[in-house]
């Protein structure tokens, strides 16, 4: 179809992602924000909510983190500033998510459309900041704000033979925490109930509106953390620029759609997706294929999974 062998493309993608230690490091740093956003989405999906606003929540996290670093970067010792920036990012992301949640709970605006609109608004806000108040002196370019000093970058942690970016551990920890919260806490149990039947959950006495807003806030917080990682991560650009979220939120939705409710599957699939994203950069070079091929593969995988799941359910019900 494309005048190129799919097997060859596949080999190139994998080799491009994992062929060398440096490449693995890049995959790892692409993996971290995906993990964080997917962890957040596990929470909202548990409650049956379509938090498409996750993309904007990542952006707001990046904005808040940048704001905190700009304000505190030279006041506090670097670790303190970075820590506070992380907290600010969590705050920014959850506030943005709560807005989508409030639109849904009190304004009757479906979270899909509320979230999408908020994505665009988050985009404009970022552009405004990059070009306006936070612009570089004399320049009005969407290239980004002044990069932060290396002392404000997240460290890499050596795990021979790799230098693993610190944010990866953050992502895995978040995934673990979400997994525990969903399985072990009343919050998680309530979300499971809400996701299965909002009405029954309400009649069981679960404060459904409150728990749904909490789910939004939790997801937004984790997505905000993803934004924080995109600003401060070891291999990031260390600056705020428009489109910094780069579709990580949407990609994370695909991850969760494919992984279902399993955190472990989320970890694996997001890793695979990060590898595909990075690995597909090799395609244009060797095969004259556009690097969006990675996106095609990712979404095709999920589409096939959805169709197969439907097909299987149909066959099972036929037999039964």
């Amino acid at each position: 179809m494309l005048g190129a062998s799919p097997v060859e493309a596949y080999r190139l993608i994998v080799a491009g992602a994992l062929g060398q230690p440096e490449r693995v490091a890049f995959v790892l740093s692409a993996w971290a924000p995906l993990l964080l956003a997917a962890a957040g989405l596990l929470v909202t999906f548990a409650a049956g909510l379509w938090n498409i606003g996750v993309e904007g929540q990542v952006l707001l996290g990046a904005v808040f983190a940048t704001g905190a670093l700009r304000a505190l970067g030279h006041l506090l010792p670097p670790p303190g500033a970075v820590l506070l920036a992380g907290l600010a990012a969590v705050l920014g992301g959850s506030l943005w998510a709560l807005l989508a949640g409030a639109l849904r709970a009190y304004g009757n605006v479906n979270e899909i459309f509320g979230g999408l609109g908020l994505n665009f608004i988050a985009g404009s806000l970022t552009v405004y900041l990059v070009l306006g108040p936070w612009a570089r002196p004399g320049i009005a370019s969407t290239s980004g704000t002044l990069p932060f000093a290396p002392s404000l970058w997240l460290p890499t942690i050596p795990v021979p033979p790799l230098e693993v970016p610190g944010e990866v551990f953050l992502g895995i920890a978040a995934m673990g925490a979400v997994s525990v919260a969903l399985r072990g806490t009343y919050f998680g149990l309530h979300l499971a109930a809400i996701g299965r039947s909002l009405r029954a959950a309400h009649l069981r006495g679960i404060p459904t509106t409150r728990e749904m807003l909490r789910a939004f806030a939790a997801c937004g917080g984790l997505a905000g953390l993803a934004g924080f990682v995109l600003v401060t991560g070891a291999h990031s650009r260390h600056q705020l620029f428009p489109l910094i979220s780069g579709g990580d939120g949407f990609l994370a939705i695909l991850v969760v759609l494919l992984a279902g409710r399993s955190a472990l599957a989320c970890i694996l699939i997001s890793g695979a997706f990060a590898a595909i994203s990075m690995g597909s950069l090799q395609l244009p070079l060797a095969m004259q294929l556009d690097s969006s091929m990675g996106g095609v593969i990712q979404s095709l995988l999920v589409l096939c999974a959805i169709l197969l799941r439907g097909l299987r359910a149909r066959l099972v019900s036929r037999e039964g």
């Binding site: 060398q20 440096e22 490449r23 890049f26 740093s29 692409a30 924000p33 995109l230 291999h235 990031s236 650009r237 620029f241 428009p242 489109l243 910094i244 979220s245 780069g246 579709g247 990580d248 994203s277 990075m278 950069l281 244009p284 070079l285 690097s291 969006s292």
Partner: peptide, 26 residues
Amino acid sequence: MVYVDNVNPAAKPGVTVPQIVDDMVS
């Protein structure tokens, strides 16, 4: 020549110049 095109956040999110330079060196 080895090249990478479309290096901008709209087309290749998350890709940075140092990463690409690393890759090219490799």
